[in-house]
Design a protein around this nucleic acid. Structure first.
Length: 400
DNA sequence: AGGTATTCACATGAAACTATTCTCTGAGTTAGG
DNA sequence: TAACTCAGAGAATAGTTTCATGTGAATACCTGT
């Protein structure tokens, strides 16, 4: 007990080298967005007519993750809102992330969210979708006003439920008498619009803006600006920022990831009682971030999904690749033994594909000629992660 | 030897089903006048 | 008669199952030399 007490005291007395950690969180909103002036100006040009309540072109924003799309749009919307408020222009802006589970990832829920934004509650289920649309129309068309609707990660939405929703949304304007809606889609899949219904495609991407990835130098600059606010001077080892930027640049210039890494490195350094953040801490941070990502992904999956993953972890300790059929065999035996019901191979195949998508396993579809076609599966996780993952899955599946 | 045709072991798609959670409707019941 | 209760019909959704079709290349099977 005493030990812990002194630990807490020491903790308080030692000044943290963090000045303001919130600067490094993804919720932080910087005053300026470096290297994105051009894109912001362009978007502003496109959206400006909204201030006069004139018809505004729908807009499509492309760019890889961590290239500042979301941030830039939020920034633009915020200033647009400010002006609108000052001049009493009836503009509403809505930002929705279509990937959020149980929030806006289906047609019904998306519209329900919009209605909620307009100040009315919609039950999570029970109503027909048409009804929800009608409520929305009525609410929005009460007076002359402009709606800017930003749909982030719109590719996830169409991947899951098709593009009918987008068709409906783009068509809304012709059914509204007073109000107007302008759609702004954000996607990090550059070729996403290719396999969209041509009608939707043409009306949605009237204007397109591309956010290029940051290069290493730009990320360095961004990191320095953030670090200056987040850390005390002298808290970072020389060369740390450069290394951090290099990590991120390797991953297609993802600034968010770079900032994340820096924060986690700081936390690790702080906990280890070091007085500066070193490159070694950064390496640790990278490992931590990676393993957190994977473990998080695994934990948030359904039971059967975890079961498949668990058998996979159990039986692929050696580097030797394993095939779908073998895994299915092992999996069904395991289920029998532990009283879980067994899924069909069809489903397991889908689960394997999902595991591949999440980056938990590596699965290549190969043809063994006369001996069929199958997935060749390897696990590319580090031993420590595998062990941790096993523990967590055992707990979650109530295995002993 | 060289060229096709087969064939395996799944992959991939589409539709339909199941269980759960939730609303709405309207018949039957209750309580008050 | 108005208010209340409660069962049943109908929706949305996640996770599956069923049925159907697709597929890449190692082999089997020809053919002609």
């Amino acid at each position: 007990m005493i030990k812990i007490g002194t630990y807490f005291e020491n903790y308080l007395e030692k000044d943290s080298f963090f000045l303001d950690k919130s600067v490094l969180l993804s919720s932080y909103f910087p005053e300026e967005i470096p290297y994105r002036e051009e894109q912001i100006q362009e978007i502003a040009n496109i959206l400006a007519p909204a201030l006069r309540l004139e018809k505004t072109s729908n807009l499509f924003v492309y760019g890889k993750t961590g290239t500042g799309k979301t941030l830039s749009l939020r920034y633009i919307l915020a200033s647009l809102r400010q002006i609108a408020e000052k001049k009493r222009i009836p503009i509403q802006t809505i930002y929705l992330n279509c990937k959020l589970k149980r929030v806006a990832d289906t047609e019904y829920r998306l519209i329900a969210q919009l209605i909620k934004f307009l100040g009315q509650e919609i039950p999570p289920t029970g109503l027909p979708t048409d009804e929800v649309y009608n409520i929305f129309y009525k609410l929005i068309d009460q007076k002359k006003q402009m709606f800017l609707l930003v749909l982030d990660e719109i590719d996830q939405l169409t991947k899951k439920i098709g593009d009918e929703i987008l068709y409906n949304l783009t068509r809304i304007n012709s059914e509204l008498r007073y109000a107007q809606i302008c759609l702004i889609g954000i996607s990090n899949n550059l070729i996403f619009a290719e396999d969209l219904d041509p009608r939707v495609k043409s009306s949605l991407s009237e204007e397109e803006i591309i956010f290029p990835p940051y290069n290493a130098l730009q990320i360095q600059d961004i990191l320095r600006k953030r670090a200056a606010k987040a850390f005390r001077a002298e808290a970072l080892e020389i060369g740390l920022i450069e290394k951090c930027a290099a990590f991120a640049a390797r991953e297609h210039g993802d600034a968010r990831r770079a900032i994340d890494l820096l924060r986690v490195a700081g936390e690790i350094a702080e906990r280890s009682g070091s007085s500066v953040v070193t490159v070694a801490h950064l390496d640790d941070a990278e490992r931590r971030v990676e393993s957190d990502k994977i473990i998080n992904a695994a934990v948030n999956q359904p039971k059967q999904f975890q079961l498949v993953l668990y058998t996979l972890l159990l039986f692929t300790t050696q580097k030797k690749p394993i095939f779908t059929g073998e895994i299915y065999e092992l999996y069904s035996n395991f289920c029998k033994r532990s009283n879980y019901n067994i899924l069909t191979q069809r489903r397991v195949s889908d689960i394997l594909a999902e595991l591949d998508m999440l980056g938990i396993i590596n699965a290549n579809i190969i043809s063994k000629g006369r001996y069929g076609r199958t997935r060749q599966i390897t696990i590319s996780l580090e031993e420590t992660i595998i062990i941790k993952l096993k523990e967590i899955l055992e707990k979650s599946l109530h295995l002993s």
